[in-house]
Structure formats: structure tokens, C-alpha cells
């Protein structure tokens, strides 16, 4: 700034460009939180106060551990950038609604500390922190993480699912009996993917689309998740090619198997709308930091997630494969980026 009419002008120079118009990092992160809120609200509507408590606990765990580690490292608090809130909410949405709260808190702490701050905080994480937390509890608490409860239980707003309030390091109360008493009609305790895998039963795709089936808190309504993703795309805060590539990858791979043997393998539509695929495609795979920046890298990354998801679902030991598919793709992201560098304009 050139000071005018001054004996000893203070000159403070900087270089072009002098104007910028970009959403700031906190603005982007805040908008992702806004986009997640309807998904969270619908989850609370389906599963009641247990889901709400889980979200609050995981988010608090993420925020507190981020604050703690920032202070330990003597760095400025990174809480105002809102990225820890996203991790907390996403984590809750990937867990069963009746997941014991203390385990949820542990997942949050592990996700933030091992998945994010260990690598240097926002911008440096190799993996999606929420999925790191979930992968940890998947390994540590295999029973709790595959205990599902019915949607729309009559008393969901007045009492917790019995397992929710388990004390740390205690076996959570069994929920099977409770589920039978509160379910509107017959509840099998299995997600659509588990029904497909172990019993060969296909849930109607429309039920999946509107989200009234059992599952994690957030893997319910594909329609709602798509709408929330559309908001982010419209605000230019998410690359639409990424979720599109994940969905396309899933559809292509599932279609191949379906064509091979329509009796054994599910339809591509079922694959797309079941489990956590939609949540994973729209909110998890699209974690900017852990995904490639190059146009073709983004497409390959999405296709890879789709492919791995279908393979794990059909041939792996687990019913759901989205989490590991995304973690694998996160690890492959720098590699994908390195051989998809954009072709320079004018290069033949």
C-alpha cells in the first residue's frame, strides 16, 4: 500500500493477483456439515435418540481430541475449520444406531488422532479419518458393529436402544429381543446386504431408495443423500465426477456379474442403493484431501472404489465393502495421481 502525502511513506507491496474469489476452507467444510445435517436428521427420525446421542458423542470425541492434540503440539487450534465436525458426523452415520456410545467415542478419538493428526492435520491425511476410526472399531468390536436394530421403533424417541448405554469394557446388553418387541413387523436383524449374501433374499430397491431398511445410521435413504450431494455440487464444493464414478464403477462391475449369473448375483440397482455405497460415494470418497486432484485420477479413483466394493461384497467375508474399498483407494490415490497428470495445453 503506497501511502500518499507522507514524509516517509510506508510501502507494502504484494504481487498479483490482487483479487480472489474463493470459498475459504472453513466455508467449504461448513457447507459439507450443512449437507450432512438432513441425512443426520432423517437418521434420528428413523432410529430415535440413540442415533442422536451417537452423533453427539462421536462429534464431541473428534472435536476434543483435535483440540487436545493441537494443544499438545503447541499449534493453533484447528477446530474453526469445521473438518473435525464432518469426521464426527460421518463416523456416526457409518455405525449401527445402537452402537455403544463409549465405543463411538473411541472410534472418534482413533479416527482423529491416527487418521488425521498423526499425518499433520487437515490437508495431510492419507485416509479419510472417519473411516480410519470405523475400521478400528470394526476390528475391535466385531459383534457390536454388526448388531442392527429396526427402523421406526415405536418408542425410539423415549428410550435408548439397550446397547447404546453400555459401560466401557462391558458387554453391551443384547438387543435381539428388544428389536423383536419394538419392530412394527418381523425383524430379522439383518441388513439388506446380509440378507442378500447369506440368505439370497433381495430387498425391494424402492425400500432402499427411500431408506426404510435396517442398517447404519446413515446408510438408509439413497435419495436424501443424493439430494444433499447435489447441494454441494451446486455450490461448487464437490466434484460431481467423483460420486458419479463410484456409482458407475459399482454399476459396471455389478452388471458384469449379474449378466454372468442373474440367479446368484444381485442387480446393479440393488448394489448401488444398498448398504453404505451412496453415503460412501457422496460424502466419504469425496473427502478432498484423500482423493486425487487430476481429472482422470478422480475418475479412476471412483471406478476403483466401485469395483472393490462389489468384489468385497460378493466374495469377501464381510457383508459391506464400501469402507475398505475407500480406504484402499485412498492409499492408491497418490499413485493414481502420479500417472494421470493432466496433458499440458498445446502438447501433442
Amino acid at each position: 500500500m503506497a501511502k500518499h502525502q507522507h514524509a516517509h511513506p510506508v510501502v507494502d507491496l504484494r504481487t498479483s493477483p490482487y483479487i480472489r474469489r474463493a470459498p475459504s476452507v472453513p466455508q467449504i467444510m461448513r457447507n459439507v456439515v450443512y449437507a450432512l445435517l438432513p441425512v443426520c436428521a432423517f437418521s434420528v427420525y428413523l432410529f430415535g435418540i440413540s442415533a442422536l446421542a451417537l452423533m453427539i458423542v462421536t462429534t464431541l470425541a473428534c472435536l476434543l481430541s483435535e483440540q487436545f492434540f493441537c494443544r499438545m503440539a503447541g499449534k493453533k487450534s484447528t477446530l474453526p475449520d469445521f473438518s473435525a465436525v464432518i469426521t464426527g458426523l460421518l463416523l456416526a452415520l457409518t455405525l449401527p444406531p445402537g452402537f455403544p456410545l463409549w465405543m463411538g467415542a473411541l472410534a472418534g478419538i482413533i479416527g482423529i488422532s491416527m487418521g488425521k493428526l498423526l499425518f499433520g492435520g487437515i490437508g495431510y491425511n492419507v485416509f479419510n479419518p472417519a473411516l480410519v476410526g470405523r475400521a478400528f472399531v470394526q476390528a475391535a468390536f466385531p459383534v457390536a458393529i454388526s448388531t442392527w436394530t429396526p427402523t421406526l421403533a415405536a418408542n425410539r424417541f423415549s428410550e435408548f436402544i439397550p446397547s447404546t448405554l453400555a459401560l466401557p469394557f462391558m458387554t453391551p446388553a443384547p438387543t435381539a429381543e428388544w428389536s423383536q418387541t419394538v419392530a412394527i413387523d418381523g425383524f430379522t436383524g439383518a441388513t439388506p446386504l446380509a440378507l442378500m449374501k447369506f440368505e439370497g433374499v433381495m430387498v425391494r430397491t424402492s425400500d432402499l431408495f427411500f431408506g426404510t431398511t435396517a442398517g447404519s445410521a446413515g446408510e438408509t435413504s439413497a435419495l436424501l443423500i443424493l439430494l444433499c450431494g447435489a447441494y454441494l455440487v451446486a455450490r461448487n464444493m464437490m466434484d460431481w465426477r467423483l460420486p458419479a464414478a463410484v456409482i458407475a464403477g459399482t454399476a459396471i462391475c455389478a452388471e458384469c456379474f449379474y449378466l454372468l449369473d442373474p440367479d446368484t448375483y444381485p442387480t446393479p440397482l440393488f448394489m448401488i442403493f444398498s448398504g453404505g455405497l451412496m453415503l460412501g460415494a457422496v460424502f466419504m470418497a469425496s473427502d478432498m484431501v484423500a482423493s486425487p486432484v487430476t481429472p482422470w485420477g478422480i475418475v479412476l479413483y471412483g471406478l476403483l472404489i466401485g469395483l472393490l466394493t462389489v468384489l468385497i461384497r460378493l466374495f469377501g467375508g464381510l457383508t459391506e465393502g464400501v469402507m475398505y474399498a475407500i480406504l484402499f483407494a485412498n492409499a492408491a490415490s497418490p499413485l493414481l495421481e502420479s500417472f494421470t497428470q493432466p496433458k499440458v495445453f498445446g502438447d501433442q
Binding site: 490437508g123 495445453f345 498445446g346
Partner: peptide, 27 residues
């Protein structure tokens, strides 16, 4: 636009989409 705090690159790819020469400014 005043200088604001520089934050780590979050690899949002907006620069890659903006570069008219198709470079990778993020990298």
C-alpha cells in the same frame, strides 16, 4: 482481497480446474 491466513492445501482441485494451461498447480 486482503491477504488471509494461508492454510494447507486440501487438494480440492479447484486450481486444476481453473488452470488454462492444464497444469497441476496443487502439486
Amino acid at each position: 482481497t486482503p491477504n488471509r491466513n494461508v492454510q494447507p492445501c486440501i487438494k480440492c482441485a479447484m486450481c486444476v480446474e481453473a488452470c488454462p494451461i492444464h497444469l497441476n498447480p496443487s502439486a
